[in-house]
Design a protein around this nucleic acid. Sequence first.
DNA 1: CGAGCCATTGACAGGTCTCAACCGTGGTGG
DNA 2: CCACCACGGTTGAGACCTGTCAATGGCTCG
Lengths: 246, 246
Amino acid sequence: MNTPTISSSNCDNCPIRHRAVCARCNADELVELDAIKYYRTYEAGQTVIWSGDIMSFVSSVVSGVATLTQTMEDGRTQMVGLLLPSDFVGRPGRDGAAYNVVATTDVVMCCFRKKPFEELMERTPHIAQRLLEMTLDELDAAREWMLVLGRKTAREKIASLLSIIVRRGASLTPNSIGENVVFDLPLTREAMADYLGLTLETVSRQMSALKRDGVIVLTGKRHITVPNMGRLLEEAGDDSDGGYLV
Amino acid sequence: MNTPTISSSNCDNCPIRHRAVCARCNADELVELDAIKYYRTYEAGQTVIWSGDIMSFVSSVVSGVATLTQTMEDGRTQMVGLLLPSDFVGRPGRDGAAYNVVATTDVVMCCFRKKPFEELMERTPHIAQRLLEMTLDELDAAREWMLVLGRKTAREKIASLLSIIVRRGASLTPNSIGENVVFDLPLTREAMADYLGLTLETVSRQMSALKRDGVIVLTGKRHITVPNMGRLLEEAGDDSDGGYLV
DNA sequence: CGAGCCATTGACAGGTCTCAACCGTGGTGG
DNA sequence: CCACCACGGTTGAGACCTGTCAATGGCTCG
């Protein structure tokens, strides 16, 4: 395992301090959380959690990208969550994991022992409030995703995924002001296919098509430049304003 | 409209008393909820909420069935939620509605004025706790649905939808013990298509196919008998035990 | 240099959509 | 009273998009 060293057990320097499940906690509450927390690291490709596992912890993604997937008996796989820094993993009150969690890049997790975390939640409204807020956001994201899966064409699906990654990464890579948006795909073609309910061949073909049509510029396989974000949003079939204030 | 009379302003007789957002509330908390609540009824086909509307209330479905849908500019529509009795509508902390809500049967809603409800939530952990629990359940349902939308065939999608309706209706129509499961579809073919990301023609064809193959028996358009529930679950591509205790 | 992985591209098959005709029921108005 | 329409549903024929199977290319690493 790479660099298991945890430089900051200190929440003050934590990159997700004000966005994760602990966002609303005050100093006293952080002390309580600190007592039940530990860090774990995972290498790219490693499975963090197997569906059905008994979970002894819940956790927050500190850095890196992981996926939440569901698999049918015959192997068909659907991604049901894309876990970026600050996202929460696990369900308080449930023992078994419902999904597979796989690290797609090297990942650092901030884990809380489950039992004490649940007890802490009982008497710390700040945690439960934040978790409710985050869960409602995830539910909205899942519903937007359902529209993508159910009603969009392959080309629109790809454009939607790229838009979502840009939107979610905006806070991480603060260069989304000008026209040119640049980012690295944290997913393989296969993972993109699992996200979008497509085959990896169709993903590849549509990526090539968007490239050919000048919607995106591909440098290597993963480095992407979007010359015109409005155009990408059009291709995604979304309202051209992106749904948020312009 | 059938029986718009609200016989019970009294929570004790409420059919969703122990399943809705108020499930954990004690007598004192119910009194507070009672002060900010009112009932509304909607006829089948009526739109309850338009996406983008300013919401002055949140609510629980008391009886009937409603749908939560999202629509693209060109009219493509995806259902993102199926609202059955006890389900919660609205998002505390957000002013605008994100989805359309349409009554598919006559519906009774128990509405709470939004501002006071939010204030009550702040000081009543029982409500926030229950809402978190319900939201996590909805998120799980949305993720199961994503697998259906992204990876299942039309035939599997239909079988999955019927299974879900049976499972959710089990508590409502307590006849799911024996082999024969009987129920009425609360959805038109078009609504089923919007649920599953299909066209209504494909839904109709697959319903006919399942009927022809003896998986279901159709009486009229909406009345369904499932002679062998295990068979239906197989057709849905799910684990044969249905995920729950047999 | 070969192995393994990720990705691209082609040819073809097949599942679902599109367009269209038709059926049965219930309500309505001449 | 009955023609007529609206509505939900079924079925057919053909087109098209995406999946399947297969071959190939580029890259990294041992």
